[in-house]
Structures are given as C-alpha cells and as structure tokens.
Write a protein that binds this DNA or RNA. Structure first.
Lengths: 203, 203
DNA sequence: ATGGAAACATACACAGTGTATGTCGGTAGG
DNA sequence: CCTACCGACATACACTGTGTATGTTTCCAT
C-alpha cells in the first residue's frame, strides 16, 4: 500500500523534521559557522551519526533548512500577487509580501545573511534560482514585457533588483523589533522610487 | 634617529608585506575558507609561526588584506571625483571610477564576495565603514544636501546604494574577462537610471 | 523465527586553527 | 667588545569540528 508509512518511516521522518527544526533555530541564533553539528544533534537528542544519516553534509543540512524557508516564502509571495493582472501592481504587491516575510527574523537572517556566507555566493545563488531569485526574475521580465521598465539585460536587471531585495532583507533582519515597522516603510518607498527610475522616459 | 629603521625592523616589515601579498593572491584565487595559513606561510617561505607573529588570527590577516585593497581603491575613487563641484557629476565620476576598480578581479572578488563570507556580514560592514561604505555615505549625503535626491533616511538610502554597488562588484568579479566591458556599461546605465528614480519629482 | 535492511550510535581519521615554548641572530648599554 | 635582552621567527602540541567506517539495535517481510 503506497502512501501508508510504516512506523519506522514515521519515526525517521519525525527525526529528520526535528533535526531540521533545531538546525533552523540554532543557525538563526548563532549563525552557520558557530553552530557545530554536535549541538544540533544533542539539542535534538540524537548523535551526529543521525545527522549524517539524514544529510550528507553540514552544507546540505543548511540547504535543506534554506529550501524549507524559501519554499514557504515564495509560495506566500506568489500567492499574494497571483490575482493581480497589471504587472506593476503585481510587483508592488509582491514587494509588500516580501517585506512582510523579511520581518520574520529567522527568514531574514538565514536566507539573506547566513545563506551566502554558509554556501558561498555561487552555490547560494544556484539554490535561490528556484526561489527568491527565480521569483525576482519573473517579476522583472514581466515588468519589462509590459513596458513598465526599460528594455535591458534581464539578467543584470534582475541581479540589481535582487541586490536591493537582499539589502532590505538584511536590514530588516538586523533591525530591532521595535524599529521594523518604520524601516519597513522607508524601504518600501525607497524601493518603489528606485524602480520608477527604470521606467521608460516619456520623451 | 627616529625614522631610520634598524635592519631587523626592515626584514620584519618585508616579511609582513610578503605575507600580505601572498595572502592576497591565495585568498583571491581559492577563497578565504579554502586557503590554509600553512599555504600562505609556505608560499612566503616561512612557517605559520611567522604568520601568527604578524597577525593575531586568520581573520585579522584577511582584514589587513582587505584594508590594503580598500585604502587604495577609495583613494583612487575619491581622487577622481575630487575636482568636480556639482554633486551629481561628482557622484557619476565616482561611479565610473568604482566600476573601473571592480574590473580588477582581485578587488572584486576579495572585497565583495569573500569579504562578507570571511568576516561575517557585521564585521565586514564594520570594516567597510571606513572605506567603500563610508565613501558611499558621503556621496549620498552630498547628493541629498544638493537636492539631487529626495530627502530620506540617509542610513537606509546609503545601504540601498551600497547594495547596488555590491551587486556590481560581484557581477564584474564573476564576469569573464571578455564580457567585462559590456557588463560594465550595462551596469553603469542601469545604476544611473536607478539613481534618477530617487530624484525629487517635478510635481 | 530469522535474514536483511533501515535508523541510528560509536569510534576514529584528519584537517586546520590557535597557543605555548624553544631558538637564534640583532641590537643596545656598559 | 661583550653580554644581556628582545624581537622574529620555528617547532610542537592541544583542541575543535567535519566527515567516514564500522558497529548495534529495531522493525518488517517472508
């Protein structure tokens, strides 16, 4: 009977999920480099053996954490913008949803600060292709197609916009909880203004 | 006689400089994490003992490398923009000088890619306060003062612009040597356009 | 019940950083 | 001059942390 999990499979899956969760917490609290797998294991009440059973390496564990966070985040953002036809409006709604997302300290810290540090920029971007970077790319090309921003290399434009989003993510991740609403608003208006710079000139 | 160095001091300074140079090369070639101090030492024909004599830690060695690169870079950029009175023109000249700088693969790689990875984002930004970040901040505030860009939080605006510059640095560091001129130009126009988005509205 | 495989634990190899100590040549004061 | 010291480095070692190889137990199928 496919779909029915044996007890052992359930246990195994639970362990894996628990590892993922403690790893998320510890990576977010202490950062990738300052978190030893021993800590992750003991906090989950298993040994490092279990960790290496479920994940090939420390890096892969982090990637799994990242993917889990990004899957949820991109889903939310895409969902928020889904109903809107106009490309510009959709992008602005997406931006708002993204800002909301970044106010979660775990997301901001792990995806935008620890991510590139832990995996190296290349590998990180490779992972992000599927998520934030990919989504950004979609928004950018749809804005370009709709004539809302000037025709230019989509790759480079995307990287610029992505960098902006990264800056926002890092800032919100850094900001004290009390400051977040203010910072959030300033980021929103600034990002909008910068993007309007890309609009085709009326001339 | 102050100012005159004893022979020992000269030797010492020379080895320190040599260490700095090989470290620069190796960090740029292999990255910070994949470069062991043993490699730096042996390539300089000394032992790790010498490295630890001159630098308190691997991190400090990297910081020294970074500072050396950034000192030179910011000097060049500031110098290029020095003669120009108009804040906008000065900023554009500075941008051009920066783009030139980033075409040096060593600078781009170490300052914009390895930097945050090696030191962690916080410490990296702390270092950059004195150099690229500080210079960016100056340009931004002078643009704001001159009314070329809208009044807004200078801190946040600076971080946005800094992120843009970082994106450029990374891209040029990544780009194949043959592509650099093209990428450079596209980056330049894109950056200019984005910045114009910050100009106060005529309305 | 029993062979086998999955889910872990245990133990170990190894790389790399940092530190404590040793050595040797240069330099300064008498 | 010479000698006592100090700085520049070398040597050796401790410790942390990753990854791997090998056990051990538990579950499930036959």
């Amino acid at each position: 009977m496919p779909g029915v999990k044996s007890r052992r499979e359930q246990y195994s899956e639970a362990t894996r999920a628990a590892l993922l969760e403690t790893a998320t917490t510890l990576f977010a609290e202490r950062g990738f480099a300052r978190t030893a797998l021993e800590d992750v294991a003991s906090a989950t009440q298993v040994t490092r053996g279990a960790v290496y059973h479920h994940f090939a390496s420390k890096r892969e564990l982090f990637e799994a954490v990242l993917e889990s966070l990004e899957t949820e985040a991109t889903r939310r953002i895409a969902e928020a913008a889904a109903g809107t036809d106009d490309a510009w409006d959709a992008a602005m709604i997406g931006l708002d949803a993204f800002l909301d997302q970044c106010c979660d300290p775990v997301y901001g810290r792990l995806c935008w600060q620890e991510g590139p540090v832990a995996l190296g920029w290349d590998r990180w971007k490779e992972c992000e292709e599927k998520y934030a970077y990919g989504l950004t790319s979609q928004f950018v090309t749809s804005l370009m197609d709709a004539g809302y921003i000037e025709q230019a290399s989509p790759e480079i434009t995307t990287r610029f916009v992505f960098a902006l989003l990264g800056a926002i993510g890092s800032m919100l991740a850094d900001a004290a909880e009390a400051d977040k609403p203010r910072v959030r608003e300033e980021c929103a208006t600034l990002a909008r203004r910068l993007l309007t710079g890309l609009r085709p000139r009326p001339a």
